[in-house]
Amino acid sequence: MTATAQAAPAVPETPDDVLIARSITKQFGGLVALRNIEFVIPRRAIVSLIGPNGAGKTTFFNVIAGLIPPTSGSIELSGMRLIAPARRAWLEPLLWFAPPLLVLLIGILVSGGNIQLVALWGLLALLLATLILPTAMARPAWYESFIRRLGIFRSARPNDIVRSGVGRTFQNIRLFHNMTALENVLVGMHLKLRSTPVDAVLSTPRHRAEEEEARVRAARYLELAGLRGRDDELARNLPYGDQRRLEIARALACEPVLLLLDEPTAGMNPRETGEITALIGRLRTELGLTVLLIEHDMRVVMGISDRITVLDQGERIAEGTPEEIRRNPRVIEAYLGKPPS
């Protein structure tokens, strides 16, 4: 029994796809959480990922978010290869440490036993290291392109993936509980703000203007998610439904191209569920977002999805429009068990 033979046919790729996942496999020890998952999300689509508990939905989310490195396979986001097996990754630390060590070595050779001169060269090497290491940590764009030109590839870190346009919410709410609703959204805007520590300490006009503007924008995200007037409430004091809304507002603040929603209506009453469903629809029409949704509530899934992918025990068992999925015998079997014969 080969996995590929059983998997449903993949949607054909187009150059405009937001996300393309190629044969993603993830093993945790002996357990195969994901097996050869092919997955394509067209731009401005709402795609749902469903499946019974333990099917690998959240694992797949975490792989896309860069939190869990896949055992094999690769992920492209808006045409950029972000996650793939590493190539020549050992070369990178060498690039950091070779220049300072070289300077030190030259220093030792040149100064001919004069310990003070050696110390001076050592200081120079140290200075070089304090320039290189923070750069390597920040990974600015020019550094990344330089690294790629050397043929080095290592997967993007979760924060880099956010930079490339993925925002997400969590199945079990993970707000910053000791911060206000507004501050939670402001954390989401982290990458969009530019002010440096020096600006902040000196409280430059630029910094203050940016903070002011950021607060206005953050309040707008809160309003969009239906949290008007809740700005200064601590996240932990918000009612459950509002915490879910705040998760969405915070993810929107990352200004994503692709929004990953992990069970956004879990634990909500039918009225709230309806509101969230309407909100998701508006995110596409008003903000032009692409949405990948994990959801257990079939009314939500069937109501707003363009396409649905069904996972079961780490395999993609079906893919299609809501109508097709509703009638798919493998899906019915996965959810209800084999009918007695």
């Binding site: 979760p158 997400r168 989401g188």
Partner: peptide, 14 residues
Amino acid sequence: QDREAAQLMGVNIN
């Protein structure tokens, strides 16, 4: 408060 969640909001935790 939550290192992983911060990272998934774009914060460079290192």
